[in-house]
């Protein structure tokens, strides 16, 4: 994708987002008391102003994008295998969702160990042994610090509980 394409797409997305906010999101998801006498004091006022400005900036991006000279130069550096990159990103999204789900169940320490190891192998580390050792030690050290020095109640989960 070149600069012009990005600029145009950003502008269109900004205008669509503004329209969505103005016509659907704000009326449905922002509540306002019925007795607000002055428009500027209403909880709706600020979101509407910001949405309107987003639409205007979107329009500006589209106009600026149309004026741009079309170049074929890509905006981001190409990688060897974009398909594999995309698969890794999807796997990382899955890993993040799994971490979020597992933390209250397995506990933050065990989940972090698994997340560390999984991520290290996802990005094909050249130091697998170091990665496994660090995966085990880092969450334990952080647990010791946060739980016993900072007094933070780190979630322990339902399986193995640490002192």
């Amino acid at each position: 994708m070149n600069q012009q394409a990005i600029q145009l797409r950003l502008g269109i997305v900004a205008m669509l987002a503004a329209a969505f906010l103005i016509f659907y999101a704000i009326p449905n998801w922002v509540s306002s008391p019925s007795n607000v006498r002055n428009l500027v004091l209403s909880p709706l006022f600020w979101p509407y102003i910001l949405s309107g400005l987003t639409g205007l900036v979107g329009l500006g991006l589209v106009i600026a994008g149309r004026r741009m000279s079309a170049t074929t130069e890509p905006v981001n550096d190409a990688i060897e295998d974009p398909r594999a990159g995309l698969v890794r990103l999807c796997a990382m999204a899955g890993l993040m969702a799994l971490v979020f789900w597992a933390m209250p169940r397995l506990g933050m320490v065990w989940t972090s160990m698994l997340a560390f190891a999984a991520m290290a192998f996802l990005i094909r580390t050249r130091h697998p042994v170091t990665a496994v050792v660090c995966a085990a030690l880092t969450p334990l050290v952080l647990y010791a610090f946060f739980a016993h020095v900072a007094g933070v109640a780190i979630p322990q989960g339902i399986l193995v509980r640490l002192p």
Partner: peptide, 11 residues
């Protein structure tokens, strides 16, 4: 190494 540092940063 970056591929050890990044998982560490995540945790």
């Amino acid at each position: 190494p970056r591929r050890i540092l990044m998982p560490m940063v995540l945790v």
